[in-house]
Design a protein around this nucleic acid. Sequence first.
DNA 1: CCCCCCCC
Length: 614
Amino acid sequence: MSSHGLTVGFLAEIMQGNELENPVVQILGSKRIAGSGEQSERFRLLISDGKSLYSYAMLGTQLNDLHRQGKLQEYAIIRIDRYTTSVVNRNEKGEKRVLIIVDVTVLKEGSLVGEKIGNPQPMTDTPSQAAAASGGPDKPAPSRPMDTLGGAGNNAGNRSMSGNSTQNASLTDSLTHPISSLSPYQNKWVIKARVMSKSGIRTWSNAKGEGKLFSMDVMDESGEIRVTAFKEQCDRYYSMIEVDKVYFISKCQLKPANKQYTSLKNDYEMTMTNDTVVQECKETDGSLPEIQYNFVPISQIANMEPNAMIDVIGVCKQAGEVVQFTARTSGRELKKREVTLVDSSNASVELTLWGEDAQNFPASANPVVQLKGARVSEFGGGKTLGLVGGSMMKLNPDSEVGHKVRGWYENGGSDASISSVSARTGAGGGGGFNTEWLTFQEAKDRNLGSGDKPDYFQVKAMIHTIKSANAVYKACPQTDCNKKVIDQENGQFRCEKCNAEFPNFKYRLLVNMLIGDWTSNRWVTVFTELAEEMLGKTSQEIGSSLEFQKEEAEKLFGSISFKSFVFKLRTKVEYFGEQPRNKTSAVSAAPVNHKQYNALLIKSIQELTGVGKN
DNA sequence: CCCCCCCC
């Protein structure tokens, strides 16, 4: 039976702690391990080397996209170009070794293979005998001794259950755990991780007490995690920890990460405890596993919640001066600089830099700005970005994405028509110019208008019906008063608001029309100025024709029926007694600019399908 | 156990 080039026996080898280069295996299944949200989802593969089946192959999250693209489906034959193994659980029954796949090449797509190769049998956990016999030192030459970690307390995580009490705590890389395998349910581990960023020491004092802390974000090939050190641990480790250095870390407490304060791809974060051991790993080959980014197209920032933490890359199209001022509330002297970033989503966002970041920024150089863990804020209805503790800003990164966005910018991007997600729409501010495009169904699904402030959106919609009855009312003739007057039936019209009677009145319009897009429709109110614009007549003309030449008025309304406009709408729930009613009015109604509208549709299609993006 | 991150 042909093995189709599979590396038969590879799985048995790695279970023994041995390594083989570029093994070829077949995928026989995969399982999505749900994290909270797309960012932390992981895939676990069932793989075969033709002889054995193995279900503890974890896909590094950097390969998630490959999986989502369907390249790693059943029966696919892949070459594992880079991997790492790790013992995650060792007990009397044996040990469990996890294979973390870091890089792969798909040799043959599953659909072209179409069948399981050979008759692979499930692997069992390595018996403890074998584990003990070949032990940690089953690697030919343990190259990275770690003398003190764990020390007499036998704290070296995964060793403690081996039953080999005489063993010195000497640890090789093969026995460290991938960060992505850590969970609160398993505390026997050691990670080897590089510090990506480190906060300053911060103190706090509140009802629950006071203290100090610092935190750092660390990473390895499998993932990243935040580590926080409080009080004693803060004192113990703060000066030792340096950004970019690599450390062995063990015995921290894991807890669910609060996503509000981090953009790291990990469901957990950890806290140092009294038992925590941290030791610098000096013998590294200097290679820095790539930091994982989850870049958000700038156009999408418009849809993000305030306080979201995101990764963004864009070109600095414009940078303001450093502005110094005194904060009104705190009295602090602040320095800031506003920077405009653009990317190929043809959108821009304002990034606010503070203090040294503001002063050191090369304002005239139009650098590519790469942000990890930037924080989204909302101001005046627009979105802006800021940096917080764990944020990292890198200028002109020498990376594919960096060059790509630079290339886009140099090849027309700098002149592209850009819409700003930071543009202030302002509640009641006439709809602004950056109103979000939504369908009626989306507006409904999002419960638009149910908040304290009105919501605005724009939609391309056709006028289905216009109610001519009550489309006009007689209003107070005073310039700044539009209050409906009471006809005194004696040639006088009374305005309650002005507490006066007038011999005349002016017509005002309040036209209710049913407008619809392809998803749904909605009754909206069009007030005087806009109604005049849409109908091409003054309120007085429309009012008098409604009163005296009904037919002509109907004809006028008919002239815009079944016409399409781009409506900017304002929606807000209002209460009529106990009854909530969503009132929607039109702020503007512009003729459809088909070129622009088509560009919008194309962009939506690209976003929905991923086809033709970037 | 923090979680403030500034201003319009």
